[in-house]
Design a protein around this nucleic acid. Structure first.
Lengths: 332, 332
DNA sequence: CTGTTAGCGCTTTCAT
DNA sequence: ATGAAAGCGCTAACAG
């Protein structure tokens, strides 16, 4: 910046102002400066700006997986809003692991993010401590945590799980099973399973037909294997609710391979309204959530907290519930 | 850091050393310092460190889409290596757009990344200029660019497209079509299409049966629509090569809906070896690439360039070719 | 093994 | 409308 200033025959301060905004730099001066900037290919150093302004321009966002269109959509929704606010996102992939989440939080905190968006409401103790002392607005998404750390944008995964069984029951199924991943990782999936069991019991149905295939994310192939395991153990099963559309599709494909009629013999319900659910034949019944809306609302909450802070306003953190909806298609 | 130093009864420099490495701090002193650090919950400020060391600790990585398991795997491969090297990734999603790539490059450059990994070898002029003056090692992936900006880790998408037709020809198909996205966005997809046409002509087959469905990423649903368009215009088509497994799956599902036998009446080949290709019924013939290996090799190239630079060694940029392979399954 | 000094590139603040 | 001085939190380089 000094050298740009020298070439333009002004002080560094004037260059800084010319670059930053329109205010208070003579037009001729500004033009001269911008010409020099272009000529020498000067790119301002964001680090120095961070340092001087004590504002990092970063927002940290953690998702369980990037390779999942649900979370990818949420990230896209956030990007839309944070981009417009001039904030850059630091995106981290926790791989459905609380330990990895802790590592990432610790690493990101050093970059002094202005806000932090997390997926889920369950975190390690150290993560909670780090976050609490971080002095940045926090938003938890995709869940309705018992002890929120700040704002919340999500929905009840338990209710979603319950909605699945109730629908299967409504279309006449009396022996539903559930396919999901190992507990202690995907807590949202575990809550959907809990919702399934609770609602099944409430309807007077057996709630023990559960196949757990290992640690999340549960793949399509694992869904296929789960069907075999399910039928080997409980041949009477007449409906299968799955932790996601991916495993649901695996169940469907395996039924087709085995010549099992869907939904005649077995009904299938998934979660997430993934592309594959909309496109496969027969099309999957599923639960749809507006994932991008979760991202946008999470960003808006963070931005709101930041704005309140800047104006010295007090602001209570809030919970925004994003409704899910059952999409009845051809498999159940 | 000053306050930690005060509480531990040492100077800031000693705290810095204790935090950074084992070297040259008395064990008792270090223990005392680390205790204080833990007690007050001190988190070092990475920005100040960047500023003082003139090393950002960032690596920029740009991919066309995060919600695509091929690129997600490449990102995972990179993360593995960069993490181990203590570098944090700034991940950007170009949405298959060269303009968006340019914006992201400009924004990331302000953070002074130590290396930059791009997808593809086609960039806007300004992007090329920005990159060339950036003074950071550059790696281009997923392609074999005509004018590389630095190291390259990829494969020939044209050859992959050609391999698809040749296989369809080998299994007796003489009237193949191609389904892809609009040109000028996904240049890799466009190259696969070019390879398809060239190889078709070389085999004496018609090369004009191409359905373009719009801008990438091409979805499963668009694949389904493309089948209808293809058969409406060229009812004789007996095989369809697709720009990716997602569109290929859409074609397959639509065939099933229309009662068209696959592969009896129509053979299908995809690209990418996505989960859905492995799991669907019948399983998709496709082209597999070790995407995580691309990511690891790209990171290794960047790290190699960085190491050479540090030691003042000269180093010629290199091209690493990651082989693709045809995976013959049930649809072709 | 530990401390001191200087300075990274920019912006804030105050002065002109 | 522009400039000068100070300083953001840390570490390189040197001294002891």
């Amino acid at each position: 910046m000094q050298s740009v200033a020298r070439l333009a025959g002004v002080s560094a301060m004037t260059v800084s102002r010319a670059l930053k905004d329109s205010s208070s730099v003579a037009e001729a001066t500004r033009d001269r400066i911008l010409t020099v900037v272009r000529e020498v290919g000067y790119v301002p150093d964001a680090t120095a700006r961070v340092f001087a302004t004590r504002r990092s321009g970063f927002v940290a966002a953690l998702v369980p997986s990037l390779d999942n269109s649900n979370f990818a959509d949420t990230v896209r929704g956030m990007t839309e809003r944070f981009d417009a606010a001039g904030l850059q996102m630091l995106i981290g992939d926790t791989e459905y692991s609380l330990e990895r989440e802790e590592e990432l939080v610790a690493a990101f905190l050093m970059r002094r993010p202005e806000a932090i968006v997390l997926t889920g409401g369950v975190h390690s103790d150290r993560t909670r401590r780090l976050l609490e002392s971080a002095d940045a607005p926090i938003v938890e998404t995709w869940d309705l945590p018992a002890r929120p750390l700040g704002d919340v944008v999500g929905f009840s995964n338990e209710a979603a799980g319950a909605a699945m069984v109730r629908h299967l029951h409504a279309v006449g199924r009396r022996r539903p099973g559930f396919v999901g991943g190992a507990t202690n990782f995907d807590t949202r999936g575990a809550e959907r399973r809990a919702g399934f069991k609770k609602a099944a019991r409430a309807l007077g149905l057996a709630a023990d037909r559960v196949v757990l295939v290992g640690r999340p994310p549960v793949t399509m192939d694992q869904g296929a294997e789960a069907l075999d395991a399910m039928l080997a153990r409980w041949p009477v099963v007449d409906a299968i609710a799955c932790v996601s559309d991916l495993s649901a599709f695996g169940v469907l494909a395996q039924c087709q391979r085995r010549g099992i009629d869907v939904p005649g013999r077995i009904a299938i319900a998934g979660f997430g309204d993934f592309d594959v659910a909309r496109c496969c034949h027969p099309r999957l019944t599923t639960i749809a959530v507006d994932c991008a809306a979760i991202g946008r609302a999470a960003a808006d909450a963070a931005l709101g907290a930041l704005a309140a802070r800047k104006e010295g306003r007090r602001r209570r953190s809030a919970t925004v519930e994003i409704p899910f909806r059952l999409v009845v298609r051809e498999t159940a």
